[in-house]
């Protein structure tokens, strides 16, 4: 690495890795507020299909988003084994429904690669980059893309 490289580039990023269907995704740990078990959501009228509704997060109303549906996967049965990752997106708290949380990883910037062209267009919009860790491919998600627009539209 040259001296001119900003320090941040080589620095490790801590990522929460999770699974949806057979894919692995990751989000920056700094955006994660908590991880909690599945709770049935109260559906919201006229909401986009991937917004499953709202749940009670210790007295606050938390919208939950089915990431799989958001990424264009076919809707699946809700499972009590699902997990909700509560993330901070801008000023709002949002719950992401995922199949399971895999682990927390430190990823060096050197291991990040641009999203491969083979990915679908939808995936490319939400995936900021791809990290190769051992044999795994972890797609890092651009949180703002996931609900930035729609939340704004809904508001």
């Amino acid at each position: 690495m040259s001296n001119g490289t900003p320090a941040a580039e080589g620095a490790d990023r801590e990522i929460v890795a999770f699974r949806i269907a057979d894919q692995e995704y990751g989000i920056d740990i700094m955006t994660v507020r908590e991880i909690r078990g599945w709770t049935a959501a109260t559906p919201l009228p006229q909401a986009p299909s991937y917004v499953r509704g709202v749940i009670n997060l210790r007295g606050a109303v938390l919208p939950v988003v089915d990431l799989g549906t958001r990424f264009g996967m076919p809707p699946r049965e809700e499972s009590s084994r699902s997990v909700i990752i509560v993330v901070q997106a801008g000023t709002q708290l949002v719950g992401l429904i995922v199949d399971a949380v895999a682990d927390i990883l430190s990823i060096s910037h050197d291991h990040l690669q641009p999203t491969p062209q083979v990915a679908s267009e939808a995936a490319q919009a939400f995936v900021e980059s791809v990290a190769a860790v051992d044999e795994r491919m972890i797609q890092l998600i651009r949180l703002q893309e996931v609900f930035g627009h729609d939340a704004a539209q809904a508001a």
Partner: peptide, 27 residues
């Protein structure tokens, strides 16, 4: 009364939400 706007946004026909005794949210 609990705000829906805080974490989500305005929902047509819905003023706000509340939390029922069983912990579920009602609109």
């Amino acid at each position: 009364i609990k705000s829906l706007e805080e974490n989500y946004g305005h929902v047509p026909g819905v003023a706000a939400a509340t939390i029922l005794g069983n912990g579920q949210i009602a609109l």
